[in-house]
Write a protein that binds this DNA or RNA. Structure first.
Length: 929
RNA sequence: GCGGAUGUGGCGUAAUUGGUAGCCGCGCUAGACUUAGGAUCUAGUCCCGAGAGGGGUGGGAGUUCGAGUCUCCCCAUCCGCACCA
């Protein structure tokens, strides 16, 4: 009986589907376990071999936990709103809903042939009105909430209105865009519009005009994490700064809790660190500087209060509101010109010449709060309006940027920190500033002689007690811009009446995405939704024409899986209290500052308003590495339609051109020239310069992408080797977190293993199992294996599990073991990795129910224990010899015997024994003179 | 510049967590079966050495009876942030 994987796999996939083997239901008698994959965006290219890496790993874990007696929730869905479908729609006129539907169908089919144990009854799609109803609902809750720092949670906006009516506006310690204060009377007299504007200052979902990342090519704004190096992540188009009225989410209110929460989750250090950096908390102190001949005070933020005596100038950001007021007559023209210039420089240009120092003097002077010296005030674009107060006290001796600025404008540099072991030197001769937070203070009055860290504390205390400023904390995190000028996204449940935004009544949700005739912006530059007919309430008030961004739908999807068909609520309390949150979340690390941060924020918010019982969405996070592709290149001679083989390309001037990897022989890189000619028009008539009568291509490891023609789909591998082989092989490649190029060479080894494994159970005639009693050796092989597999799955070391399976199989083959008593537990042991073959053998062995319901085999320590231990006898650390002794012997007794042992005597060579080192009752080393 | 991670045979990797470095697989070399190829099986495969033996985990120091593993300093690669005051 041969191992016919394709027949077996089809058969069991159908069985699982028909029997709903993996359906999850609340069962109060069982402990729950929630295993989740980051749901994919269904792109047109289909799945490639990189996708299943994480899916297979989480599937193994889900199956393992099921066998360990947990009630496992393992759902899958689709993040179906997004740019590519819309851009495809613009090009082809094909409705995004249609292409998305097709892509999802393809994805599901590809996922199913890998044998993943999803409960498809719980599938969610973000573009489904039944789902986005709750995305809209969440938005309304955010709109109707503000954040109170005193109780450290989101509160209903009605409480804030109450406070305003009571005249408590001043006393509030709440998150806001800018501080406001007014009396109860003033509040009463505000117009409806003014009240709305005031409340916008506090709402967690709010409308504001701010500088945004505008991408003209995509025709939309982008969030900070969607922009890298001044270009869009999607498409790589330039991004500019532009003021626009946009919806934003006040994630900054949660900065501290987002930071704190990281201590309670099991995530990799690197992801936690990325989030910490992104939140960017820094403790420091605000200091007021008065301005000569002006009443206003200039407030700056510093983390180095200790260097306050080293301040020799001040710098304002060009956008700073005081610039206009304080600039003296003589400098007005130049300052204005500088501001204009700074404004027109795109973000990208600014980044490009970070090292270029620019700025201009305002003519104004500040007064040092302690020494009362006058200090000049400059403006420069190295000071950002968006961080701190948009103004700094510059200490050129101890800050590299201030140093560069001082050098350029010939401003004095005053040293106030003396590093250990150094003498004071002439600062004008310095090549760079001393930024290190180490050393003793000098030239600093009451701080002199103190260590920097002590001096910071003392300086802050002094500043606070003399009312020159206050201790404060700054975060780099910015609010999330939540509007996109696109069609294929969730409509905001918002309409405008007299220019004031109102949210829809919850009972009117969902607000359906309307049909439109073109997916482009309107001629007047409005978003595509402005084209929709009847895009207004029944009373005729217009709906919001922006849509929500890509991450809106993924913020709380893990909660919806708990109760995916509920039409009354996002999810029921019962479902939420049972499933709580995700125990294991598997996905790429590229979402560190996007999805993973936003969904933590939204989960904390939903916790605050009492609808979910946990304030962190994902307990344990595993980031799978990216599987890269090997791209192939041919080399076109410049200006000609000639292509030269790899080893001859240095003789010509060439351009590398990507070609499809299916045209190349993987073992020797030979290109199928006929195939290439038929592949694309440009190669039809081309001339090829060969080496050894072959055309050899070049290679490079790159991201797997349709546009680089290096995508390997899992389908063909499943067809050739089977899903079980693919599953094992993807795990066998190496640690799950590591990125690595896809390499098919090794898959043969895994394929051989499964054939060999099959032969343990069956020969040509059929099942070949016996009911003989197992031997000690056989039991040892099995139980040692069970122990190792169990430990390795728990710590997610799945590559070593595959090795262990191979070792077990090799050893049992060597022992010619065909005993049911050994092979039955082995079958259930491997079933999470290779479920199809396990199911087949399981049923051949006469079992009626799925192996998925079989218990994970337990190991017995007694079988594993070594009966005797081979002591490595080291003499002065060098291993000299090995001696075997029974383990149950008394160590002291062994000691005598060891020294008396002939080999040991030889190794010691007559020298005196100083001591014998025992570790866990085992002798490991003998020290001699 | 700041932060994080990684560095082991020709390659992917492993090492009971401080205890015989190189498990498992690929590749390669021989051999068996076969007309031949493929498939399968057996043996070998870190380096030097005929051998006994010696050397060896990016480099250098240190702690230890003992270091791939811990500490410090360099070097290299990858990732994240980047005028954040």
């Amino acid at each position: 009986m041969e191992y016919n994987f394709s027949e077996i796999e089809k058969k069991w996939q159908k069985y699982w589907k028909d029997n709903k083997t993996f359906k999850a239901e609340i069962d109060e008698n069982k402990p729950k376990y929630y295993v989740l994959d980051m749901f994919p965006y269904p792109s047109g290219a289909g799945l490639h071999v990189g996708h299943p890496l994480g899916y297979i790993a989480s599937d193994i874990f889900a199956r393992f936990k099921r066998q360990k007696g947990f009630n496992v929730l393992h759902p899958m869905g689709f993040d179906a709103y997004g740019l590519p479908a819309e851009q495809y729609a613009i090009q082809t006129g094909q409705h995004p809903a249609v292409t998305t539907e097709q892509n999802i169908a393809r994805y599901k089919q590809q996922l199913d042939i890998i044998g993943l144990s999803y409960d498809w009854d719980r599938e969610v799609r973000t573009c489904d009105a039944k789902y986005y109803k709750w995305t809209q609902w969440t938005f309304i809750q955010l709109f109707n909430s503000y954040y109170c720092f005193d109780c450290n949670q989101a509160r209903p906006i009605s409480e804030l209105i109450q406070a305003f009516e009571n005249g408590d506006a001043k006393k509030l310690n709440v998150a806001c865009t800018k501080p406001m204060s007014f009396t109860a009377e003033e509040w009463q007299n505000f117009t409806e519009k003014e009240k709305s504007d005031v409340l916008m200052n506090y709402r967690l979902a709010y409308l504001s005009t701010s500088m945004v990342n505008w991408c003209p090519k995509l025709g939309t704004v982008l969030a900070n994490d969607e922009v890298v190096n001044g270009v869009s992540v999607r498409g790589g188009y330039p991004v500019e700064r532009k003021p626009m009225q946009q919806w934003s989410l006040r994630i900054t209110a949660y900065a501290e809790r987002l930071l704190e929460g990281l201590n309670s989750v099991e995530w990799s250090d690197s992801i936690k660190e990325i989030q910490r950096n992104w939140i960017g908390k820094s403790r420091g102190c605000a200091v007021y500087f008065s301005i000569k001949e002006h009443e206003e005070k200039l407030e700056v933020f510093t983390t180095r209060a200790d260097t306050i005596f080293g301040v020799t100038f001040m710098v304002l950001s060009p956008e700073h509101p005081l610039v206009e007021k304080i600039t003296t007559e003589n400098y007005k023209i130049e300052v204005k010109r500088y501001i204009e210039q700074a404004k027109n420089r795109s973000e990208r240009e600014r980044e490009a010449d970070v090292k270029q120092v620019s700025g201009i003097f305002t003519g104004a002077y500040a007064i040092h709060p302690i020494t009362k010296k006058t200090i000049p005030i400059y403006i420069s674009d190295y000071v950002l309006m968006g961080y701190g107060t948009g103004a700094i006290m510059a200490v050129p001796a101890h800050d590299s940027r201030d140093f560069a600025f001082a050098k350029k404008f010939m401003i004095p540099i005053l040293q106030v920190v003396l590093p250990k072991g150094e003498k004071e030197s002439n600062t004008y001769a310095w090549k760079q500033s001393q930024d290190a937070k180490e050393g003793k203070m000098i030239h600093s009055e009451f701080l002199n002689g103190l260590e920097v860290k002590v001096a910071i504390e003392k300086a802050i205390n002094y500043i606070e007690s003399h009312k020159l400023g206050y201790a404060t904390t700054n975060y780099r995190l910015r609010d999330a811009i939540f509007s996109r000028q696109r069609y294929w996204g969730e409509p905001f449940p918002v309409y405008y009446k007299d220019g004031i935004p109102y949210t829809l009544d919850e009972k009117d949700l969902p607000l359906l995405l309307p049909e439109i005739n073109s997916f482009l912006p309107t001629e007047t530059g409005e978003p595509p939704l402005a084209r929709a007919e009847n895009w207004h309430t029944v009373e005729g008030y217009p709906y919001e024409t922006n849509t929500m961004p890509g991450f809106a739908g993924s913020n709380a999807y893990s909660l919806r899986y708990m109760d995916p068909t509920n039409e009354e609520e996002f999810f029921s309390k019962r479902a939420n209290e049972y499933w709580e949150n995700v125990d294991l979340y598997v996905g790429g690390s590229e979402h560190a500052t996007g999805h993973l941060l936003y969904s933590r924020f939204i989960t904390k918010f939903l916790f605050d308003i009492g609808i979910t019982c946990k304030d962190e969405p994902y307990k344990r996070l595993v980031n799978q590495g990216m599987i890269q592709g090997k791209s192939c290149f041919v080399y076109r001679i410049k200006g000609e339609n000639k292509y030269v083989s790899f080893n001859l390309k240095n003789e010509y001037e060439t351009d590398p051109i990507h070609i499809d990897i299916s045209l190349v022989d993987a073992t020797n890189n030979e290109v199928d020239i006929e195939g290439l000619r038929n592949w694309r028009e440009e190669f039809k008539e081309a001339e090829f310069i060969l080496e050894d009568e072959k055309y050899i291509c070049g290679n490079e490891v790159e991201k797997m992408s349709k546009s680089l023609y290096n995508v390997i789909n899992p389908d063909s591998l499943v067809e050739k080797y089977g899903a079980d082989t693919l599953r094992l092989y993807e795990m066998f490649l190496g640690p799950i977190e590591q990125s690595k190029p896809w390499d098919v060479q090794g898959i043969e080894g895994v394929s051989r293993f499964l054939k060999k494994f099959w032969r343990l159970y069956a020969d040509e005639k059929g099942l070949c199992l016996t009911d003989d009693e197992p031997t000690k050796d056989e039991l040892k092989v099995l139980h040692r294996g069970i122990k190792k597999i169990e430990e390795d799955i728990e710590r997610f070391s799945l590559n070593t599990c595959v090795s262990t399976f191979m070792i077990i199989c090799n050893e049992l083959s060597d022992l010619k073991c065909h005993k049911k008593s050994i092979l039955k537990p082995l079958c259930s042991l491997i079933s999470s990795f290779a479920p199809h073959i396990a199911e087949e053998l399981w049923s051949l062995m006469g079992e009626t129910s799925s192996v998925a319901f079989a218990e994970f085999p337990a190991y017995n320590e007694d079988y594993i224990k070594d009966t005797d231990y081979k002591y490595p006898i080291s003499v002065n650390g060098k291993t000299k010899t090995f001696i075997s002794f029974p383990l149950d012997k008394d160590p002291e007794e062994i000691k005598q015997e060891v020294v008396a042992n002939e080999q040991v005597q030889k190794a010691i060579d007559g020298k005196e024994v100083v001591k014998i080192i025992f570790v866990q009752g085992k002798i490991v080393n003998i020290v001699v003179k």
